[in-house]
Amino acid sequence: MRMKEEFTLSVFSENHVGLLNQITNVFTRRHLNIESLTTSESAIQGIHKFTIVVFSTREEIEKVAGQIEKKIDVIKVFVYTADEIIHQEIALYKVHTEALLNGNQIETLVRQYGARILEVTPEYTVIEKTGHKHETQELFEKLDKYGVSQFTRSGRIAITKHKTEMLDKYLKKLEADNSKLN
């Protein structure tokens, strides 16, 4: 067996109903667990972006990418390893305000981890931290000593380190190919 590693897929598509289902199906058929998934508009109007994190082998992930790209409404799929991208997740923690007021440990943690306090009410306080998964997890474990009543983490969002924008380049090429046709 080849080594499994973490891959981040950037899938660019037309904004059509039902596409998410089509994309996740490719993973389901191969029994691949999706670690995280986010979707949003991309920088280009009308083009949607899915960021998907999975553990797999290079060989398999290339096949997955090919099968996703084959979907009619998918424009392009890029496969990245961790070192090719800058990525973040956001986490929210809900703690009892009482715990915050009982000493300065929580505030110290917030400062130490570069987190911030979003909202304080007499009952609860919401803390926000952006970072890699292991960082937000670590803060959770530290805070939990003082009681975290809710914890939630977003899926990954990612930006490439490439100097040129791969999708722009691809779209330009598409346009050029098309004008050659007509």
Partner: peptide
Amino acid sequence: VKYIRSYK
């Protein structure tokens, strides 16, 4: 239809 952007 002769062309779909996302389909080659």
